[in-house]
Design a protein around this nucleic acid. Sequence first.
DNA 1: CGTCCACAGGAATGACGGGCGG
DNA 2: CCGCCCGTCATTCCTGTGGACG
Length: 416
Amino acid sequence: MQNINVLDEVFERAVKSARVFKNRNVLRHDYIPDRLPHREEQIRYFGEIVAPVLKTDRCSNIFIYGKTGTGKTAVIKYVLNKLMGKTQTLGVPLRVCYVNCRLTGTEYRLFASLCNAMNVKVPFTGLAVGELFDRFKAGLDAAAALLIVVLDEVDELVKARGDMLLYELTRMNESLIKSKLSLVGISNDLRFKELLDPRVLSSLSEEEIVFRPYNATELGDILLERCKLALCEGALSEGALSLCAALAAAEHGDARRALDLLRVAGEVAEREGAARITDEHIRVAEKRIEHDRIIDALKNLTPHSKLVLASVYLLNKANVASAITGDIYEVYCELCELTDYTALTQRRVSGLINELDVIGLLNSSVVSMGRYGRTKKIRLGIARGLVKEVFAGDERVACLVEYSPKCLTDASNRRS
DNA sequence: CGTCCACAGGAATGACGGGCGG
DNA sequence: CCGCCCGTCATTCCTGTGGACG
């Protein structure tokens, strides 16, 4: 009975409250707007590079750099969409294949997407990579078309698999008779070039475009543009907009970040029944995004990663501000015994610590303690309370947050 | 000024479950 | 159903190293 009343109230408020969003989707990452403020130069340049396609010529391979949220993907997709439209009216046989290398993950799946783009049917798995490569090549040549392959976040692929694959792709034109292939590589990492074989680099970056981060003013313009479509009239105060832009500008000028902030702030405001997004909503959104990110990361850890994190947590609780690898491994082994997991090797735990560092749950840095060795100092990267909160709700590790390791008291005695 | 600690982190290899062609 | 290859995780073995100590 009471439940129903509560729900009534919630629904009632949702209906009556002023609407903040006109179209929430406009603030999503995958939305490609019709206007991309402050990217006219890049659009023009990229357009010039791919233009030969309209005369059924191969266009140059292109390399594109820029940090996340600088509009790389949006510009590329925007231009290629327009190009596709144009080629269709002109009857040019163009195909475009967009692949995100980080999401795609492996060479196999990358080739599978390429085959897909050429309408070559391949199984999800089971074939040799070489076989897939051949099928793709055959499919491409049979189609007698121009193919533009966009490899987004290509640095991730090379870091994980090496540059052999890129080498094969850049050389493919030599053995194609009826078709031509062009590559567009997109990288977030400016130092990516150094990882590449010079031969691959020279053929891949026949042309180069760099996307500089947006500054606060530019971010403001972008937000303003999107607000017109996404939000109701007057739903955003000017102060909130510039705060949003400023926060995102501080974080490498990331437009994606700015849009996330705005969207979440809008949700917060709407839930409150407010008609207008204020500075305060933006601040709340900032905290909420971070909080959700951490909780999500914590929940999805593998058991052993949880044990490693729990070890750091316990050391932290025992006033060991920054533990070293050896200490952590010692505590970790004890926790393993306690929970009936067989302990992994120190090498592996070291790897897990690095993974946790990348996600931001730990902060680690290599230090030399001279005579006493070279190791890693590791601190918790997040509030202790969050670890406790999440782990307490996880039956497998719940008991650990209250445990006091034996080796800990020994260790501190030894050191003092 | 050389030593030597306590690891970092690369490379090679193996175990394992999944999924396919034949 | 077999044999093959896949990707993932883990182990083993290894070489490299910053700097306090003697």
